[in-house]
Design a protein around this nucleic acid. Structure first.
Lengths: 271, 271
DNA sequence: CTGCGACTCGTACAGCGTTCGAGGTTTCTG
DNA sequence: CAGAAACCTCGAACGCTGTACGAGTCGCAG
């Protein structure tokens, strides 16, 4: 937004600052780490919209504008807290197979997002290049390279896996947040959503039939099963790509998807 | 947030309103459809943060608070615009295979999010039960049921596929938004991000090696290839699940993932 | 004409992120 | 020890936000 700083992200500024010889002070009363910790507490307790600089300052016994000494802007604070929670993810040193490693990673990341629901909303805004995120990337790169994926395939595999995890967590979080905001229990919420869908069932032949056969649905339980189902799909798909590598998937040559199912781009005349 | 209304979403209120006999006026000067259209124009042109009720009102030649006659709250407007853009997605009547249908769906949804980058950020906030979203669900349900998926498997397949699309689109959008916000070209942005990563390469053995071998990376081109790679993984994984259905994946019985790769939940002593 | 429902909107409120600059405090330098 | 320099805090203010409220306007039924 503002062009007054040449640097684009916190991490660049920090690298520059650490490069110059920096005089160290003992107790500045406030610290970046302290601010980040308090911000995460506030975010976990009251959600993304409840975090304001004034409230955060008050929580730290400081004025709102004092925070701006440690943090350039609120967005920068978001970068910091996001990378901080990424640090919570345990990256295992030894696993029995790459599938096992990926599964642990997937469940860990999913639960990280369920623990910090606000984090998923920050993902859509800025790409993450903080130290913890980079460490995560390096670890996953090792997993897939050691499994036998080529360089490009490994990078693609990482994107595929994390995209699935993030997408799945996003819908779960959206559901939980909606329930929390409504002040109802999940069951009440469901009871209120159903007739709303049923009112439109005239246009929805498949869902009508689905609801006729399965009148009881409890998504609460099935969310984890559902996550596992999709995770296995992704891993099986990756395994298939590993077994029969095909052409090395560099950036040269064939465009996407012409070989198998069509690109999805061409027009079909009917309907 | 506020408990003054019993209804939880726009769609419920609208159903109730349509139920009661409603006197119709010809030209109220403003209309919900008009507001939604203008909001989408503004969102596409200037992004999510640029949409304020005052600006939207001004764009329509009306006062800001006039909008509140047609829309209960700003969040409700978000529900409306999100479902409106879902209506842009073409749902094909005939396809050569379920993979082809799913591929078309995936590319269509991806490009919808690239066309309306703000939409992906709205997804994380409220679950979508608008008419267009429901129509989408019904269509995908038909695709997977006709492909031979059982009822629960079809629902899981839908979640898996859309989670992948949403997750992938989210990272793409985050990248594009960051580039746009920085005011730089993608190349400049990349040039500035690189040394920032390189500064940390000491802790990142795999990425160091990766960069040593592939010093040139142009993510601009590879984004679509990458999307296609992961999409094929997902589809192959689904196909595998279709070929060998295993136990009907209802909600009863086995917990997630115990059979294949471990749950990712258990602790490993080492490291 | 009266009355009523549909609709518009000016005003106001509390809160937001952020800038500015005046102050205080600590540490370094001469 | 004096003074400069760096570090840190923060009150005041600006322009913005979503939206509650109530007064006001319009078109039409009786």
């Amino acid at each position: 937004m503002s062009a007054k700083q040449h640097f684009t992200s916190v991490w660049a500024r920090r690298a520059a600052r650490d490069g110059a010889g920096r005089t160290h002070r003992e107790q500045p009363g406030l610290s970046e780490a302290q601010i980040v910790r308090a911000a995460i507490e506030l975010l976990d307790a009251e959600g993304l919209d409840a975090l304001s600089m004034r409230r955060l300052g008050a929580r730290l016994g400081a004025g709102a504008t004092s925070l701006y000494w440690y943090v350039q802007t609120k967005d920068e604070l978001f970068d910091l807290v996001l990378d901080e929670v990424f640090g919570e993810l345990r990256l295992y040193g030894e696993t029995v197979s790459w599938q096992n490693a990926a599964t642990r990673f997937a469940y860990g990341l999913r639960q990280l997002f369920l623990r910090h629901p606000w984090a998923i909303r920050l993902l859509g805004v800025r790409p993450t290049v903080g130290p913890n995120a980079l460490r995560m990337s390096d670890w996953t790169l090792a997993v897939f390279q050691d499994a036998g994926f080529g360089d490009f395939d490994a990078a693609h595999a990482i994107s595929t896996l994390t995209a699935y995890i993030v997408g799945m967590a996003a819908t779960e979080v959206a559901w939980h947040e909606a329930v929390a905001r409504s002040g109802m229990s999940a069951e009440e919420m469901l009871c209120e959503t159903r007739p709303l869908i049923e009112a439109r069932l005239d246009d929805l032949p498949r869902m009508r039939e689905y609801f006729r056969i399965h009148p009881d649905l409890d998504p609460k339980i099935s969310l984890e099963i559902r996550f596992d189902y999709g995770l296995k799909c992704v891993l099986d798909g990756l395994a298939a790509r590993l077994a029969q590598p095909g052409p090395p998937s560099g950036d040269a040559g064939h465009g996407p998807g012409q070989a198998m199912y069509g690109t999805g781009q061409e027009r079909i005349p009917g309907s």
